[in-house]
Write a protein that binds this DNA or RNA. Structure first.
Lengths: 343, 343
DNA sequence: GAAAGTTGTGCAAACGTTTGCACTGCGAAC
DNA sequence: GTTCGCAGTGCAAACGTTTGCACAACTTTC
């Protein structure tokens, strides 16, 4: 019993042919109820598990979706993944998950790998492959859905958050509260999300009649550490020129900023207002609760699966753009009087 | 070109036999350098990706590890996963990841599924299968490693956090600071981690000469909401009988407790001390920074892979128990005088 | 009582690989 | 000019399934 039982083992015990076993297990109507029962109990006893490799080989289609993410530790990715899981599970698809550690080369390697496993389609979360790489993307004849990344092509579909709008929303919210000096704490430099949020930030500023100040976008990478650094940068600015509010690339870095502010004795929101992005579960329990722009991460995952399955069914698929709302909580207040006096 | 190119397609173009292609691609020394070159470029041009299903079928062994977790959204699971990823990637193994949504039945189904995919071994994180189910666990002839769960059996190995010790550590820390009324906010009822941490809590109490009070263990489930509820429970207790400190099942629920405390105007640590468990990345940026017991999650994942691979190589494998340390931060202080007066 | 239909089962091919063995040339050794 | 060794390549079997087709044994119909 050193090897996994196969359909042949069952056949031998039951005294029938392998094809009969296959049909019985598949529930074919051409098998008598009696034989089916017998075969099923034998399968149970032998602890039989079908070889999906063999099945895939002959049927040519497998009920698996490949999913690639830069990291599984990111709460945003986790949320997207939940959507993917729920939706694919409902439709009877399994997932083959791989992480690329944020390395574009590994990402391509993972694509190859998953295709080698005969996945029916690919979902790629926050691809780090630079857009100009575009044409160099290996072409497969299975559909690919990018979540929050853009690589146009045949058989390639997109599901995205409206990051530009989100950036605009956050900045406008601050502007409407009376802030005139709003800084932006950035995310991964290459990232499309980062540049789009920055663009929305800029548009909001200019629509309100303020000049866009490149010196007020502080570089970051979406980690809490980036938030800490941003706050220390803020403290170093001469008081009269300090921004009175921060729009942060994501909740994680906003939380880092909050933590550093607490440790440095900077009061939030009295001394500095903060808006995050994502509406991560943590944003609700932060101290004070974080005002943020919602990103419908679960919905992104769900939609990606829907698009992929539609493409598989040869239905027309269009790119999807999801807008989140601003969730006002407790990290935004009117700027101090001194600042208003500035004007 | 509707189908993926196979080794035969390459063979046809190159004017050689499929076996030659297979050998050339595998780097067999029996193929002339010239032919190898030619075949490799053709493979490139055709965008060939080997069918891992077919390869697995004939070789009988696949370089894949199956990983099952109740959820991918839990930061603790994410950390374990990082360890698993790093270690398995280093050894040339891919991962097939499935989540069970915390449902024991799905968990078993996932095991079947992954075995069907011919994974070389299985890693199961925080199994929710009740221990008494034990014998009912399907038996496979591949090694299985449980992380923080216990299902003894042949070919089954374990990697665990010393939860009892961790619970003792947290409680003792509070006791040493002068607390005499320490409550425990629990985790998932069935969970082995929960009961072990509770046992450690109890042992610390009794070793210090205090009676274990069942009414002071408040039920929870590891979510922030559970922490919120716990704080509201605390507020309802008559002041003279209130615990002065909380040991929480995990950081997530401790963070929820902190947040509710902030909203209710309860000062941490002045009014109430709190110790968490996990040392999640968030614990460092919480306000105030959370005192917690470290759980070497990454290391758990790493060890699990090591054990699995050792078992695959038929080396002797023993169960591993990892101890974390107490990380003192800022949520623990001496109890108020009134409480000390109580004694 | 023969033809036709029905029901249950088996045969064999196919999927894309890997691999033991056999084969073909060719140069070297006797 | 045989024999041997060797480098390079091809043949065919095998892995565990699924599935179109054929077949056998009954039952029904005329």
């Amino acid at each position: 019993m050193t090897h996994r039982p196969s359909i042949k083992d069952i056949a031998r015990v039951a005294g029938v042919s392998p094809s009969t076993v296959s049909r019985a297990l598949a529930g074919s109507p051409r098998i008598s109820e009696q034989t089916r029962q017998r075969i099923q109990t034998i399968a149970q006893e032998l602890n039989y598990t079908p070889s999906l490799a063999a099945r895939t080989l002959v049927t040519g289609a497998s009920p698996m979706l490949g999913v690639i993410a830069p990291s599984l530790a990111d709460p945003y990715v986790a949320a997207v993944m939940q959507g993917v899981e729920a939706a694919s599970h409902d439709r009877g698809f399994q997932r083959l998950v791989a992480s690329s550690q944020g390395d574009p080369e590994q990402e391509v390697a993972m694509m190859q790998l998953l295709v080698g496993h005969d996945v029916a389609g690919l979902i790629i979360i926050s691809s780090r492959i630079p857009p100009e790489h575009g044409a160099g993307l290996p072409r497969f004849d299975i559909p690919v859905v990018f979540i929050n990344a853009f690589h146009p092509g045949e058989g390639i579909y997109h599901v995205m958050t409206d990051n530009e709008h989100g950036g605009w929303l956050a900045t406008t919210h601050l502007l409407e509260r009376g802030h005139t000096r709003v800084a932006y704490l950035g995310g991964p430099q290459q990232g499309r999300s980062h540049t789009a949020r920055l663009a929305g930030y800029r548009r909001a500023l200019e629509e309100a009649g303020y000049a866009y100040q490149p010196s007020w976008v502080v570089p970051g990478d979406g980690t809490p550490q980036a938030g800490r650094k941003a706050l220390r940068w803020w403290l170093r600015q001469p008081e009269s020129q300090r921004p009175t509010a921060f729009f942060c690339y994501n909740d994680l870095s906003a939380l880092g900023l909050l933590s550093e502010a607490y440790q440095q004795g900077v009061a939030i929101p009295e001394d500095l207002s903060v808006v995050g992005f994502d509406n991560a579960p943590l944003a609700e329990i932060s101290i004070p609760p974080l005002t943020t722009v919602e990103q419908k991460a679960r919905e992104l995952g769900r939609q990606a699966v829907a698009s992929l399955l539609a493409a598989l069914a040869s239905k027309p698929v269009t790119d999807v753009i999801l807008r989140g709302e601003l969730i006002p909580r407790a990290t935004v207040a009117a700027p101090r009087v001194s600042v208003i006096r500035d004007q």
